[in-house]
Design a binder for these strands. Sequence first.
DNA 1: GCAGTTATTTCACCACACGAATAAACATGG
DNA 2: CCATGTTTATTCGTGTGGTGAAATAACTGC
Lengths: 389, 389
Amino acid sequence: MPWKPADDLAQSVALEVLLHGPLARVELARRLDLAPATLTRISAELIDVGLLVETPQLAERRAGRPSIPLDVVAEAHYFLGIKLTGDAVMAAVTNLRAGVVNYFELALSSTEPETVVERIAAAAGRAGGSYPIDAIGIGLGGVVAGDGSVSSAPFLGWTDVPLARLVQQATGIPAFAANDLTAFMEAQHWFGLGAGHDNFAALTLGVGVGFGCVANGRLLANDDSGVGLVGHWPLDPLGPMCNRGHRGCAESMLTVPAILRDISTALDRPVDWTEFLSLVRAGQPAATGIATSSGRALGRLIAAVANLVAPSFVVVGGEGVDLAAVSARAVDEGIREQRDPRASTVKVELTSGTNESWCRGAAVIALQGYVLDRRRVASHRPALSSIDT
Amino acid sequence: MPWKPADDLAQSVALEVLLHGPLARVELARRLDLAPATLTRISAELIDVGLLVETPQLAERRAGRPSIPLDVVAEAHYFLGIKLTGDAVMAAVTNLRAGVVNYFELALSSTEPETVVERIAAAAGRAGGSYPIDAIGIGLGGVVAGDGSVSSAPFLGWTDVPLARLVQQATGIPAFAANDLTAFMEAQHWFGLGAGHDNFAALTLGVGVGFGCVANGRLLANDDSGVGLVGHWPLDPLGPMCNRGHRGCAESMLTVPAILRDISTALDRPVDWTEFLSLVRAGQPAATGIATSSGRALGRLIAAVANLVAPSFVVVGGEGVDLAAVSARAVDEGIREQRDPRASTVKVELTSGTNESWCRGAAVIALQGYVLDRRRVASHRPALSSIDT
DNA sequence: GCAGTTATTTCACCACACGAATAAACATGG
DNA sequence: CCATGTTTATTCGTGTGGTGAAATAACTGC
């Protein structure tokens, strides 16, 4: 039973249910501005194909005939999400609701395209043993074109590798590739903190600093996505120097390696991330000092983002999220420094930044590609969409 | 003959022609993904109501039956655009194509709402003598709610003034109000440099520094629009001090008053803007010094914008645009400083920033309100629009 | 049980966009 | 200057597919 809504209308209904949880027919009719009669017909079709089911009604009981929420059958489809790094292939299998049902990692002996594709195919094989995979999504740091070919990925030494096509040929399963931050953002937008929001931004802290933004309901993206344009954003004229000669740029203040370098130098011994965090919590002076100045820098970056793109809130994620948690006060200070007091306060939300969540993002790329049937021509949407309201 | 496209389809067709110039039926069919037959019918209707006309065919002659471009009849409707300042009401009458057909100014003796409304009504009366005005648009610096009421406008001393409603009551003509930058952006988007583009940003230099951004086909806007959030953006740690204690912020580096203060102090005599510009062109050291550092600061601001919102290009406007012209090289340097060399180069476009162009922006607010029939419920557009492609 | 309320279904209707064929209006070339 | 090819516009019958109104179903509250 493939995802095959007959027409455009059925597609909208299916998507609305997929994205905004179980919804009754009346509610769907309201949201999509359709007559109740139409929804009876369409939902019947979709239930018939096995895409939707009537849930045991958990809606609040009011007067009148109770509504029957319709939900997508989460286990109708499975997707494989791959996060590529220089030395490992991390894989997660998710269902239609982007819930992770399986996670594992494979080591990577070489970064040659053939090897990588072979490993991904191996992951697909392993995942396919337990779950029928409908599509594969791959996320990686670098510039990825819309057709899933990797324009450039410095950490792999790749230039113009048609990754999606290669994986599709090797596995026989539809494959999609995207920049890892794009994948992260799409996952946030469809199933994460950004679900149901048309305007929000996100920052990820880790080996580098990432930025993404959903504006007017769509991800802001262009050919430069993946270059990492906020990496060298100036945050502190007195901060440390990065390898490109910027003083106090985002890379030098906010990345995990930079912070670990700082604290290790201060204590004159190697310190890892979890130890750094506990040192900060314990009040160790060097650690709190670093956390405070980095937190303030993060706040300034958040303020800059908020000032320019006017998001409803800013999500912070990535392996280094906890910096925002342990230095929350400094972050607030940093925001206040560069935020007009007359403006609304900036809401900051933290989210997990584990490898599994990066894989989930990649799986969402697969899910979107499958559900929206990419490779179709540009969608039927007239000038109005870019204008009204 | 009012703007009354019968149905949704007719509306899209009319808008497409209004926004994207004369278009043949085939071309419209292609763009809106409709059958040629449909376009024959719809365009017949629209020609019937007097909204469209067949133009004397100026399309390039190829083989086959020549196409007949359809165009909107520009003089079918007129709009009054008002730009409010603390001491004057500036007014422009435009046609449906947002072409200015009349411009005049009225002095303002007081900033009391009653007085202002009375003066606007006077302007409407004067304009209405020559042209039948279909709607009035008002642009002003400050925070304006979606319904056209002014939440706060410091330079007028206003809080919660239902301006649009008052003007509508006083004149009997539909009235709309918006932040002046919003108006400027909408005008750029529909009829200016941003016409046909879904992603671009703009900066205005004048008494203050303004910023606006069209992302994914719509203006980025929220409750903070109008607060002027980029005004105190840090651009130069060694720059002059602004009145809020920021060193080298946008206000202190880029506004016309700040620059004039600088040059006047340096030369120990009052200097006005045009003289400043000629001094720079003549190579006067103090003037070129100021222009260079301000230009570089502008470049940095442009780079910041480009890095975050990924626009196709950045428009610079406002009364102080010419700063960007006379210090073009410094602007480029400033951009290079904070732009990753791997990223695409930032295109910068200059546009006029006269009072007339601000009024034109306000007129576009009126035009949009009229044409899109604001006060209707949210438009019929299902979940898809926020998702696909 | 009865009244009130809200959700869903049934079904005939009809607007409206479409497909295919046709006509119109040019360029080109011998 | 006519034949041919090409592209645009129109005509018209057809059928999809969303709708409106009324009926029905399934509750709550009293």
